[in-house]
């Protein structure tokens, strides 16, 4: 089954985060009005509960992971189409060694696609107001589509002209989408977008 190292790692992150939350909450100023609980009461209660609930999760997930590691030595885990049990982990936060997935190239490609979309989205947010809506959105759409196209490997084996034609098509798509949304938002919805 799932031999995703990410599972126990995420539980661990929850443990650390809830402990941090508890400490931060206890530093809140203790102001109490008539009959009231302190502002820190709920944050402390919640983080304590998260901590308590995360412990059994961590234990169970670690066990499962260890067990799966054991069995995977003898049998190859079948590649499930259901991603919630997908064997490869795009663990951005963890530097822990990754379990070798059934098809390593595919696993790495998936992770790359994921990271790529996150990175382009972040760039989009940063550039949204400085560049204005039209330019940033066109670039964002173009980057998304071309990026996935390249990472997916569809461009391999194409002639230069065919590639150019494809890219031109994507560019038209990006520009038309950006302009169409611009017109609908600013003209029909009267929602201003940055210029």
């Amino acid at each position: 089954m799932a031999q995703d190292i990410g599972k126990p790692v995420f539980d661990l992150i929850l443990l650390v985060a809830s402990a941090t939350g508890f400490v931060m909450a206890s530093q809140l100023p203790d102001v109490v009005v008539l009959g009231d609980l302190s502002p820190a009461f709920f944050p402390q209660l919640i983080s304590a509960l998260v901590f308590i609930c995360a412990v059994p999760c961590l234990i169970r997930d670690t066990r499962q992971w260890l067990a799966a590691r054991h069995t995977s030595a003898s049998t190859t885990a079948p590649l499930s189409t259901d991603t919630s049990a997908s064997p490869s982990a795009p663990q951005k936060a963890s530097s822990a060694p990754q379990e070798a997935p059934a098809t390593p190239s595919r696993g790495r490609r998936n992770t790359l696609q994921w990271l790529f979309v996150v990175a382009v989205s972040l760039a989009y947010i940063v550039m949204f107001e400085p560049l204005g809506y039209v330019i940033s959105t066109t670039l964002f759409c173009l980057a998304c589509v071309i990026g996935l196209w390249c990472i997916g490997g569809s461009h391999k084996g194409m002639t230069g002209a065919a590639m150019l034609k494809n890219i031109a098509g994507y560019a038209v798509y990006a520009l038309v989408l950006a302009m169409a949304i611009y017109i609908v938002f600013t003209r029909v919805f009267q929602i201003p977008l940055p210029n």
């Binding site: 204005g132 039209v134 330019i135 038209v172 520009l175 038309v176 302009m179 611009y182 210029n195």
Partner: peptide, 17 residues
């Protein structure tokens, strides 16, 4: 059409300044 859209885009972007 594409040129028209581009033209519109330019107007929208620089028209205000």
């Amino acid at each position: 059409k594409l040129l028209g859209t581009l033209g519109l885009a330019t107007t929208l972007m620089f028209g205000g300044q």
